[in-house]
Design a protein around this nucleic acid. Structure first.
Lengths: 250, 250
DNA sequence: CGGCATTTTGACGTCCCTCAAGGGGCGTGG
DNA sequence: CCACGCCCCTTGAGGGACGTCAAAATGCCG
């Protein structure tokens, strides 16, 4: 397990260039979104970039991390485990999302890079100081935390009440919605909607509260029924978004 | 469905006295915990108290509420439902907890009084203004929201991976811990630990992602095995907290 | 070509859900 | 005081969705 603060080995060496905040791809979505002028300069002064290859641990539960930060590129999964090894993904973070809890140094769950990831990191101490002095930073963090809380509660409904088929359809709909928003250029609505899966079958199972076999079986069945199409197991195409939405249960 | 702002009928008429903030039982735990002096006066100036009998709806999903507030007494449940009627409790709020999301007027879930409830309410608009002007208020709200997020993620693990028996044990352990903290007077550790259940079997099922029959069956079995004892279905006694903890799975 | 990880598929078991009936507590009304 | 209804809880029988165990297929990379 490798903490946010640990130096990285060669395989994780930087491959993305550091950017000015003004050119940052997550400028509008990240914790810094409401900041400008002096506040942005102050944040910029304490930021460092860091890359993680797919599969690498970013932070382990119970570990004390001196860093918090924003996802610039890639997907980060948050996982909680029981002593006997059963594991449940409790969050899936995308570019712009914030990693780490200001105010509590000890991580409550494992954070792992699901894909290659670039983080924009801040040392905890200066960041928390800045947080106290910068109302718009704190406001943004509160907004983002409330959004995450809503998302977690939506997931409670999924885990508590939805069938395996509905869980998979819900997850794919969420990914489709994200892909659509990421490529807002006027795409024909009629064309099959296509996007990559950032997770393996096993990771999907971990997220959806299922086993890998159940995920695989239902994916296969959805394909057989024409709701989904995919040649590669890691990329999905949806001929009819409405049909998939109808399978999601809400 | 009755909104926070709606006037109440006779059955819900106030039965608790309004109190000065200095004498408030949740003074140390609520959103106002970090406030004093002017900030506390400003909050006090816009607060109103309101009572709800057990079972009454406080706020319905999708409804626009002009109020937010703190629970002074009682237990509030938050529930999300699917169109076909399946329902999952997504939060259980106790005295000191905050009801409503500043910044988003539309409720994301139903809020219902599980027991008789007293709320300390603030009109949304003045509260949000005060929030912008009062860093310690925003800080407290952020802290509380992060705590709720952690709790929700703990619940994801429960719903995704724990067996019915483990879910029930986990829930009872949480209640036992709360009861113990509420009565910190040096109780003998050896004595059977006793506390009331704020929820019916049906509500427990709704919270735990189970059916009422499964909850009832496992409660019966836990009693038969001596892990629990109860004469009244609504109050539980735990002869051996460690034994119950061992059933919780973590 | 060969090794490894991932995915798919099959057979079987089990935990929990569904459907159904019955019991206990409590308030209301005769 | 008892009868009745209502709600909550309990208990039972049966079935189904998903988990477990196992093996084969597919893809990736050296």
């Amino acid at each position: 397990m490798r903490a946010l603060a640990m130096p990285q080995d060669g395989s994780g060496a930087p491959r993305f260039s550091h950017v000015a905040c003004g050119d940052c791809p997550i400028r509008e979505r990240a914790v810094c979104a409401y900041c400008d002028g002096d506040a942005l300069d102050a944040l910029s002064a304490i930021k460092t970039y860091r890359e993680y290859p797919a599969g690498r641990d970013i932070l382990a539960a119970g570990e004390v991390s001196p860093m918090v930060g924003s996802i610039v590129r890639g997907v980060v999964k948050l996982t909680k485990s029981l002593p006997d090894g059963r594991a449940q993904m409790v969050g899936l973070l995308f570019p712009g999302d914030f990693v780490g809890h200001p105010g509590r140094a000890e991580a409550a769950y494992d954070a792992t890079a699901a894909t290659e990831v670039q983080l924009c990191l801040f040392q905890r101490q200066p960041f928390e100081t800045l947080l106290r002095e910068t109302p718009q930073l704190e406001k943004r963090l509160l907004d983002m935390t409330l959004t995450e809380l809503d998302a977690a509660r939506e997931w409670l409904l999924l885990l508590g009440r939805k069938t395996a088929r509905e869980r998979i359809a819900t997850f794919l709909m969420a990914l489709a919605g994200r892909a659509r928003r990421a490529a807002p250029a006027g795409l024909p609505d009629g064309a099959p909607f296509c996007f990559p899966l950032p997770l393996t079958r096993g990771e999907m199972a971990e997220y959806l509260g299922l086993t890998i076999e159940t995920v695989s079986r239902h994916m296969t069945r959805l394909r057989a029924e024409g709701v989904l199409a995919f040649s590669d197991a890691r990329s999905v195409s949806v001929p009819d978004l409405a049909a998939l939405a109808a399978e999601a249960g809400d």
